[in-house]
């Protein structure tokens, strides 16, 4: 940025140099306030000592991380052995978010493909229709989902009424309910990037493949999917990452057995029972995981770009 004005190497001067700093200011300020400051605060808090009624004592401590990873027995005086409680919650979260992502992909890909293959004038309307439910607050949508899935809810009523079921299906409080909730929360994040990729796809490639004796599913697998892969990967990340840290769907649709990392973190900062450093440490671990994931993605994108 700073070298921009002298890039030509000649006597050209950057007329805008003084203004440029000021113009960039809003971006820097918002980045600092919205990203850097909170993350640094979390990082610092995760290394502090907990105050019993919430809050922190400004004293360096590794106890938050210790609590996360180490089991030191009932009285906290044994040597460190692996603490499974939180790893299990993490594992469950990954599993739930992964299942929700796959579900979104299974529904989102055909949806996106369908929209992208409509006549150009209809596409905007379809995209608009897809996004309408998302004007409603996530909390309300999740509660409605619970209402839909209830034992006496419309879904079960319909299935019973049609004679498909003889007893109501208990979905609420199961992993499936949480997965459905997450799927419904983030579906557009899957549909939109895939839609953008399919819209840019050159369909004469599909014709060429058909011409070369490829049946439809082979065309999909060998030609279409590799071509729209960046959209698929972006969609998966955009669904997986927020699902991983989500707490509304697990809290409202799940039960004790579906406890996820988002809820764990939420609990640490709620009311008086919380443990701020522990919540901060769990957040940092979650953040690290997400960053690693994004790095892998960026690597792959770069490689695809070179190839």
């Amino acid at each position: 940025m700073a070298g921009g004005g002298t890039a030509g190497g000649g006597p050209r001067t950057d007329t805008y140099a003084p203004v440029r700093l000021w113009l960039l200011l809003p971006a820097w300020v918002s980045l600092t306030i919205l990203v850097l400051a909170p993350v640094s605060m979390m990082l610092v808090y995760s290394f502090l000592t907990k105050e019993f009624r919430g809050g922190v004592i400004w004293e360096f401590s590794l106890s938050a991380y210790d609590q996360f990873f180490c089991n030191r027995g009932l009285f906290g005086d044994e040597p460190c052995s692996i603490e499974w409680t939180y790893l299990l919650i993490f594992w469950r979260s990954i599993w739930q978010a992964g299942a929700a992502t796959l579900l979104s992909l299974a529904i989102g890909f055909p949806t996106a493909y369908f929209i992208a293959t409509r006549p150009a004038r209809q596409r905007a309307l379809w995209v608009f229709l897809i996004t309408i439910p998302y004007w409603v607050n996530l909390l309300i949508r999740t509660v409605s989902m619970k209402f839909l899935l209830r034992d006496q809810g419309p879904l079960n009523d319909a299935l019973l009424g049609l004679g498909i079921l003889s007893e109501p299906l208990s979905i609420v409080n199961t992993n499936l309910a949480v997965q459905l909730g997450l799927f419904y929360s983030y579906l557009p994040f899957m549909v939109l990037p895939i839609y953008a990729a399919v819209e840019r796809y050159n369909f004469s490639l599909s014709e060429a493949a058909a011409d070369l004796y490829a049946p439809r599913w082979v065309i999909l697998r060998r030609i279409v999917i590799p071509a729209v892969k960046p959209g698929i990967v972006a969609g998966c990340i955009l669904v997986f990452v927020p699902s991983l840290g989500s707490f509304l769907a697990p809290d409202l649709l799940g039960g004790a057995k579906t406890f996820m990392i988002g809820s764990l973190i939420e609990e640490q900062f709620k009311g008086n029972a919380g443990n701020w450093p522990f919540g901060a440490a769990a957040s940092m671990i979650l953040l690290t995981m997400v960053l690693i994931l994004l790095l892998i993605f960026a690597r792959q994108q770069a490689r695809a770009g070179n190839g």
């Binding site: 050159n202 490639l205 014709e207 060429a208 011409d211 070369l212 004796y213 071509a227």
Partner: peptide
Amino acid sequence: PHKRPINTVFQDYALFPHMTVIDNVGFG
């Protein structure tokens, strides 16, 4: 189309961008 023993050279070539030249030629 995939059941007709007829092949086409497309006006815009329609080569598969993610495959090497030899894989393109070997596809059919």
